[in-house]
């Protein structure tokens, strides 16, 4: 009999023998630690776990996990992962990517993986900069950013990854940041438990090329007034003593108000399972950059059949309808004739 009980593992079991080579002080370390600590808690199996990445600093991640892994090519991790998760619905496939990898060179694959609801857990390390190529602006960098490639300021309008994912029909979208292990771990746990495509944006500090990009909202002192925690079935409130809240205005936009002015009953009650993504989208538009109060947590989590399972169902249905494949019969399925006796 096969032992199907969850294995007992420790963080050490999940760490590979490779030396971690990110810059000292990089936000990636805290994400790696969070994942390595989370895996034993989840009762996950190392052999059934695959990390697939593209190119960039974050994409070194698979080398540090004692699981199966592929460090692939720039932008294509969601495409490789789609093939793997579709051919092998039994595996848990993670995609590790960054703002350049996922949103610039690989933007197309990200959209389609989300739309198809491929069973993958996508962790998007957003540091708003190209780190590996040493400091060019990224698709999430703020307009006007002065970098090596934009000495007079970037002209590009940035993406909001959460808005983008919601627009791409993602069934699970969340945001967290690298300064709060507990929140990050809980968010990753929720993403792991979601069957289908899950996208977690992590605000991650690049202390070499974009230090302090998120400090205005993620530093310990600023968090209470600048982070808006989204909690299921609870009114959306934040600020010291919960003095601030979020309401939906008459135009369908989300707006920040003083709770004292509107009363608690007027606040938006967060429902991540709402089939219509409009409210989640409105929440994602509350902040246009990490300088004003910014929602974190699970924006959207809805159930939708995942791609690989549906492909599998079609195979099973075809075999039931036509019988298992018979090669000799296939070769004779057209018009045939015989030459000679």
């Amino acid at each position: 009999m096969t032992d199907v009980a969850s294995p007992t593992t420790t963080r050490k079991d999940w760490a590979s023998d490779q030396e971690v080579r990110w810059c000292p002080g990089c936000g990636d370390y805290s994400i790696l630690t969070a994942v390595q600590l989370l895996m034993p808690e989840l009762g996950a199996r190392r052999e059934d776990t695959v990390f697939i990445s593209g190119i960039g600093c974050s994409s070194r991640f698979p080398y540090y996990m004692n699981t199966y892994g592929v460090h692939s090519i720039h932008g294509r991790a969601p495409a490789l992962a789609t093939g793997l998760a579709t051919a092998r619905p039994d595996l848990h496939v993670w995609v590790i990517t960054g703002d350049g990898d996922a949103l610039s060179i690989g933007g197309n694959h990200l959209l389609h993986a989300l739309r198809r609801n491929v069973n993958i857990t996508i962790v998007l390390f957003n540091n708003q900069i190209y780190g590996l190529t040493k400091g060019q602006y990224s698709p999430t960098s703020e307009t006007g950013k002065v970098t090596k490639s934009t000495p007079f300021g970037s002209l590009d309008f940035p993406y909001n990854p959460v808005s983008l994912a919601l627009g791409a029909e993602a069934s699970f979208v969340a945001r967290t940041h690298d300064m709060d292990r507990k929140h990050m771990t809980e968010t990753l746990r929720r993403a792991y438990e979601h069957r289908g495509a899950a996208l977690v944006e992590i605000y991650q500090n690049c202390n070499v090329f974009n230090d302090g990009a998120f400090e205005a909202i993620t530093s310990k002192d600023n968090r209470p007034s600048m982070l808006i925690p989204l909690e299921q079935a609870k009114p959306v409130r934040f600020g010291p003593d919960g003095a601030k809240g979020v309401v939906m205005d008459r135009n369908g936009s989300a707006a920040i108000v003083d709770v004292a002015d509107v009363g608690e009953e007027a606040l938006l009650v967060h429902d991540e399972g709402r089939p219509d993504p409009s409210t989640a989208f409105a929440l994602s538009r509350l902040a246009s950059g990490p300088h004003t109060p910014t929602p974190i947590g699970v924006f959207r989590s809805v159930e939708r059949a995942d791609y690989g399972s549906q492909v599998q169902d079609q195979l099973v249905a075809a075999a039931a309808r036509k019988g298992p494949g018979d090669l000799a019969a296939l070769l004779k399925s057209g018009t045939t004739w015989t030459v000679g006796a």
Partner: peptide, 28 residues
């Protein structure tokens, strides 16, 4: 020919097509 266990995936582009095939090969 799905009854032969053949999975066909019409990808978003040529790159995704070959990358998904390679991902599937990695899976056996």
């Amino acid at each position: 020919h799905k009854n032969f266990g053949v999975r066909t995936f019409q990808a978003e582009d040529e790159i995704a097509g070959v990358s998904a095939a390679l991902g599937a090969s990695y899976g056996g």
